[in-house]
Simulated scan of single mutants.
Amino acid sequence: MDDADQRHKAASGSLHQRILSDVKDKILSGEWPPGHRIPFEHELASTYACSRMTVNKVLTQLVGTGLIERRRKAGSFVMRPQSQSAVLKIQDIGREVTALGLAYRFDLSARQERAATERDIGRIDLGPGAPLLDLTCCHFAGSQPFCIEERLISLNAVPEAVDADFALSPPGTWLMQRVPWTNAEHTIRAAAAGKAVAAMLAITERSPCLIIERKTWSAGQPITFVRLTYPSEAHQLVARFEPSDT
């Protein structure tokens, strides 16, 4: 390969990286939100004064990373970040998000110390009047809402939660680091987003959502109940099985 060919190859490589970085930056910054149509190949080729082949390679790479999807005859569109978790494993949401290559943050929107009501009995297995910490927060992947966390913590089991600064540390992460659990129960269902949930997740009302509810105990004592609500396209559950003897 002569010097001219080497220079051309290097220029093509650097242009590919520039286009890739520009498109990724627009997606991860939220400038191009989920559902946004990426400019067509010929539009990008014109913008960067390059061949459509170079643009096609960039878009193919972005499809492979899960940032965009291609729709036949419609073009390429930004996807909502999607994670997956094992059905029987307790996941740290911050790690879920960073595993997608996105910046993680969360906002604590509600915090209340209160007594358990009749409605709470089926959620955290405590009698009416038991002291609870009631928390709601929204987790973000990049600039996009990732899931809503609604959590009850038994203050009989975890009295130190009263003084915890959950504006700095997510409740789930804080609990996993400090409180050992011995048993857990998952309930998984689908539901349509109500007005409040739709507003927090930046989706349309009645959009399908995946809901994971979990109870945890330590030596038979209830610790926490949590409801995690995800936009349906943002999360999937994975279960592995082994053959049984029957």
Rank of each mutant, 00 (worst) to 15 (best):
Q91D: 14
K73C: 07
E41A: 10
S21M: 12
A196I: 13
A86M: 09
L102P: 08
G172F: 04
E160F: 11
S232V: 14
T173V: 13
E185H: 07
S143R: 13
A167D: 05
G122S: 04
A199R: 14
H42M: 06
G94E: 10
A190M: 13
T65P: 02
A157L: 04
W32A: 11
I148P: 01
F241M: 14
V63A: 02
K89P: 00
E69P: 00
A10Y: 09
L133S: 09
S207D: 11
C138D: 03
R178L: 02
A115I: 01
P222T: 02
Y104G: 12
G129W: 07
M1S: 15
H186R: 13
I153N: 08
S218Q: 11
L88K: 15
S154H: 04
G94M: 05
H139P: 07
W32C: 07
A86R: 13
Q236N: 12
S154I: 03
L168P: 00
G172D: 02
F241R: 12
K195P: 00
F225T: 04
V78C: 08
S154N: 14
P222Q: 05
T182M: 06
A164N: 14
L132N: 07
D125G: 00
F140S: 06
I27R: 06
E185S: 09
K89Q: 10
K195Q: 15
L126F: 05
L102R: 13
L126R: 02
V23P: 05
G66F: 08
A190V: 09
S109C: 10
F40S: 10
E118C: 00
G127R: 12
F166Y: 10
R206G: 03
L28R: 14
S21C: 08
D5S: 15
P34M: 12
T216I: 15
L44P: 07
L175D: 00
K73W: 12
K9G: 00
G75W: 03
L126Y: 02
N183G: 12
C138V: 15
T182C: 08
A167H: 09
E233G: 02
L228K: 13
T65S: 14
S51H: 13
P180C: 07
K57H: 09
C147E: 11
P243M: 08
E31K: 09
P131G: 08
T47M: 06
Q84I: 06
L152A: 04
N56P: 00
H36G: 04
A219C: 08
G66V: 13
A196T: 15
L152M: 10
F225S: 04
S154R: 01
L88E: 15
D3S: 14
R105C: 05
E149N: 12
G13V: 03
A99W: 01
A11H: 12
